[in-house]
Design a protein around this nucleic acid. Structure first.
Lengths: 207, 207
DNA sequence: AATTTAATCTGAGCGTGCTCATTTTTACTT
DNA sequence: AAGTAAAAATGAGCACGCTCAGATTAAATT
């Protein structure tokens, strides 16, 4: 049993490893599950014993990367950050770990993180979303917000975060500077939303 | 030639009609292109002479509905609205026309409007996005904004709009009141973004 | 060791969206 | 009317993600 258990783990990580290589060189959509299984030395069907779908395979890599990002965030923060800075640091810590996956991230995130309702929900995607949102709530509460943000605020946050991910995935600017601007802007205004001073200042330039 | 041309138009609208019926009763993903072709009295391959993909078929309905929504908006606005109200009216006018498509809208919009980069871009989706954003820019300029919003602002707008669409598609509250709250909040937030108040432009988080 | 039971692997096969060589229909020319 | 070329329709077939009945291997039991 010891040996078999080990062999299973090796199969699992070999699948992840080869899949990442193929996704990177050929793209997510152009890599078939048959290709991955072949590269990992398994039959096609066997792969689906380890990962129930190609989408789950991709999201497993994403979830692992984001988990490391959260660890990085916790060790990098000084405790002196204001809320904007804390959220900025949290998001960029995740992106840094997602960097190696960037070439094939689009199709994966689009399918798994989208807020649109779906028939086949990807568990990894749901977990990533709720985990991220809980972390955000926790960060917010550390900054003295006693009442948790309502559904409107968190829906807006998730929309902004998805937009950031989509932009960053495509960002060709040096060192993804454009994305940093977008994150900074998005988070500053999100903080305004949850601070409750966003509801009355429209239309200064009107007419 | 006259008759044939007419027959083609009839085939086209019969496809759209039957597809909408099937999508509504069985869902988008559970309706096959073979089902649609059969219902329209055509061979499978023939359908693809009219619509190059199932996704395009769905987006054609969306685009048409949103076009009518824009017409409604133009005839409903009084000219007295402030920017928030104008944007709110624009969005809700579109949603009202999308209402009949709501049961099968999720998979269509997710694939076609997402900001994530894709291999096979759906032309209808691109047109819908750029058309919508141009309309928003036009509305903004009517309210005295001389310089067009930059990429950050419009990226944020599109993120918020997608979030609204996703939420609304799922909204079970009576008369979709929850969605209206989200739209109102989101647009107030967006107006703040383009008004440039409250946000110190970023860079201080650079590392 | 032999036998039984459970876990794991396998690849032929299914249902998709979509393609394309072929057939059929249409519109024009003589 | 007959002939011709272009346009439209056809459905067998492809590649894909994924399934599942049966084969293979490992573990537990006697």
């Amino acid at each position: 049993m010891r040996i078999s258990e080990q062999a299973k783990q090796e199969s699992r990580s070999r699948i992840l490893e080869k899949a990442a290589e193929l996704f990177t060189s050929n793209g997510f959509d152009n890599t078939t599950t048959r290709d991955i299984a072949l590269a990992a030395g398994l039959a096609t069907g066997t792969m689906f014993n380890y990962f129930p779908s190609k989408e789950t395979l991709g999201m497993t890599m994403v979830t692992e990367a984001l988990g490391h990002g959260t660890d990085d965030f916790k060790s990098r923060r000084t405790g002196e950050e204001d809320l904007n800075e804390d959220l900025f640091l949290f998001i960029t810590s995740g992106l840094r770990r997602l960097q190696p996956l960037r070439p094939f991230l689009g199709p994966v995130l689009e399918r798994s993180l989208s807020a649109f309702p779906r028939k086949n929900v990807c568990l990894e995607g749901e977990a990533a979303r709720s985990g991220h949102l809980e972390a955000v709530q926790e960060i917010i509460s550390r900054h003295g917000f006693t009442t948790a943000p309502d559904y409107v605020a968190m829906t807006i946050y998730w929309s902004l975060y998805l937009g950031i991910l989509a932009y960053w995935t495509n960002d060709e600017s040096p060192n993804q500077e454009d994305s940093k601007g977008l994150i900074d802007y998005s988070m500053q205004f999100f903080v305004q939303v949850i601070s409750g001073n966003g509801a009355n200042t429209g239309g200064e330039h009107a007419e």
